[in-house]
């Protein structure tokens, strides 16, 4: 009985869904601006602010770097090392893209710590990221291996195996985006349950959960997403 009261008391407060902020009509369709859009906008503004500040710091760069210049250089150097280590001689072309999505996904995952609903806990965001990776993979495949090489890869063991290969290609962006989405969503749901059901007892200890679900899990998933994207693209560029 006591437990039942404890667990049902705050059931109305559990809230991890995406909410509509306002809607408008576009070509006869109702389109919603949701909390995800707002959170993506906030994350973007933070990144843009950092970029402008970093640009200013680098323009007035001094021989003995200040704190901010040091941080900006460290971030760029770290990303360059990571990308160079995985992609080797293909890395100069993809540095911008991988660095951008790395910082965006990392800040999106961490934004749960600042009370936002993480944008990556919406399938629309992660599917877009997955589709960008998919486009890059196949654009580079056609660019480096030409149509002949792609057809040869399609009919890898035997020609009638092509449908299975196509399913394998399509599964790449889906599994990439679902992995990121489900990880961030599970953290969001878990924290929403803690705050909704145990509201009276959630005083300081949820901080530990935030460290695990937002910081640790978010950073690992960012790394995994970028690592897999880099591996797939490098694989598409390689010609024997």
């Amino acid at each position: 009985m006591g437990q039942g009261v404890l667990l049902t008391a705050g059931a109305a407060d559990i809230d991890f869904m995406v909410h509509g902020v306002f809607s408008y009509e576009l070509f006869g369709q109702t389109v919603w601006i949701t909390t995800t859009h707002v959170c993506v906008l906030i994350v973007m503004l933070v990144i843009i602010g950092f970029c402008i500040a970093a640009n200013r710091a680098v323009k007035h760069a001094s021989d003995v770097p200040g704190t901010f210049q040091n941080i900006a250089e460290m971030v760029v150097e770290m990303l360059d090392n990571m990308i160079g280590g995985v992609m080797g001689r293909f890395s100069p072309k993809f540095r911008n893209y991988i660095g951008t999505i790395f910082i965006f996904i990392l800040l999106s995952n961490i934004s749960g710590l600042f009370g936002l609903r993480p944008p990556t806990a919406d399938y629309g965001v992660t599917l877009a990221l997955g589709l960008m990776t998919f486009t890059l993979i196949h654009f580079n495949k056609f660019k480096h291996k030409k149509v002949k090489g792609v057809v040869a890869e399609l009919c890898d063991p035997w020609p009638f195996w092509a449908p299975i290969n196509i399913i394998g290609w399509v599964a790449v962006p889906i599994s990439l985006s679902l992995r990121l989405f489900a990880n961030v969503l599970s953290g969001t749901v878990m924290l929403a349950l803690v705050y909704g059901l145990l509201a009276k007892f959630a005083i300081v200890w949820p901080a530990a959960l935030h460290v695990y679900f937002d910081l640790f899990s978010g950073a690992i998933q960012t790394y995994v997403f970028c690592m897999l994207t880099m591996t797939y693209i490098a694989d598409a560029c390689t010609t024997e």
Binding site: L178, R179, L228
Partner: peptide, 24 residues
């Protein structure tokens, strides 16, 4: 190890996803 574990976690998360879809 962490990279491999994060990739291996995916199948479990698919199960979680199905559960969330069924419930919500």
């Amino acid at each position: 190890m962490l990279l491999g574990q994060a990739v291996a976690e995916t199948t479990g998360l698919y199960g979680l996803l199905i559960a969330m879809l069924l419930l919500f």
